[in-house]
Amino acid sequence: MKRQCIKIPKKKGESARRVLLDFEILDNSVKIGSDETFLYLPLSREPLSHELADLPEEAELAEFDFEPQERKPTHGDLLGFNPAYELIGDIALLEDPDLDSQKALKIAAALLRTQPNIKTVVKPLTPVIGEFRIREFEVIAGERRTETVHREYGCRYKVDLSRAYFTPRLSTERSRILSRVQEGDTVVDMFAGVGPYSILLAKSKKPSKVIAIDKNPDAVHYLKENISLNSVKNIEAIEGDAREEAKRFAGTADHVIMNLPHSAHEFLDSAVLLTKPGGVIYYYGITPEADLFESSVGFIRKAAENAGRKIEILEKRVVRSYAPYQYNICIEARVI
């Protein structure tokens, strides 16, 4: 089967393979290819520019006809169905909070048996609650912990799921925002959490500065650990209320990220205050199917008018389904 791959001289193959493993983009569903001179390392997705930069200089993108790996039984084979779960680092988070104990144990056993990368299986006991956006969990099987290190686009995020909110389901969205940022820009991440937006942007070395704010002291603790873990310098971690911090950085931001989808509308006045003329706000919301964008655009426009400014809507999109008839949306608005 034809796949995109990294073509690399054999003597450099192992170092390239390790880079792809670190970025989690080596496709293990097929066998690594070779000829007399080169290795062909299959990719699970197209690498980002900073990921390609970490490969040996001899590496190049190519295509190759790969042979499939021998298929091993999956957890779906053992269970007879595919359970819904989210993988964060080496923790599998079962997504159905109403699972009874017996079924949860059965799922956990199948996951631990078939996926060596999973060390712990948990299920949520509460939805995301409180101003710090956290959940309570029950460890179903495996190691008794809720702390892990999650890898994404070559970045590492240490997080305790019971102390700070994190989801890998916005990884594509984070990559999309990265593509919008230009060299020398200033970014303000109003609700940074443990840093998945801020650190990816800072590590790309595009922005001159990333200001990462969060009110949750535990989230900021992990944010600071992750800044060190990823060796990024152009980022400032701030524990504080985004409304108050906006006064300090008024008019400085080329990009303002508002990833607080249940209540971001309450902070729009501060987001407009942060944004320099021509800067862009990335507004995330949870909206009903019958009103995906209209009300949210109205909130953004009203906040701009309150400051004597106008907006230009650059893009409106559905990020993911959140609940029946409810969606996580993003609106990109330029503030003039």
Rank of each mutant, 00 (worst) to 15 (best):
K215C: 07
D254W: 01
K276A: 05
H262F: 13
N306D: 08
E305M: 14
N234M: 11
P207I: 09
P207K: 12
G298H: 06
A307L: 14
Y283L: 04
A304F: 06
I286L: 14
V187P: 03
G195H: 03
T186S: 07
V280W: 05
I235S: 00
R301V: 04
A202R: 02
I257W: 06
Y284P: 04
R243L: 13
S228K: 14
E245T: 09
Y197A: 07
H255T: 00
E305D: 14
I227R: 08
V272S: 02
S208R: 14
T275C: 12
G240N: 02
V188P: 08
D214K: 10
K203F: 06
R301W: 09
E289C: 08
H262M: 13
V272F: 02
F293H: 03
D241A: 11
N234P: 12
K233D: 08
I235V: 09
I199K: 05
K209E: 10
A307K: 15
E266H: 14
N306C: 07
D218G: 03
D214C: 13
V232C: 10
H255I: 00
V188F: 13
S231A: 15
E236Y: 09
I238Y: 00
S228V: 10
K224P: 00
K209D: 05
K310T: 08
N306I: 07
A290I: 09
I286S: 03
I199S: 05
Y197M: 11
A250D: 08
S204M: 02
L292P: 05
S208E: 12
E245Q: 14
A307G: 11
S295C: 11
A237N: 06
T287E: 04
L223T: 05
S231W: 15
A303R: 05
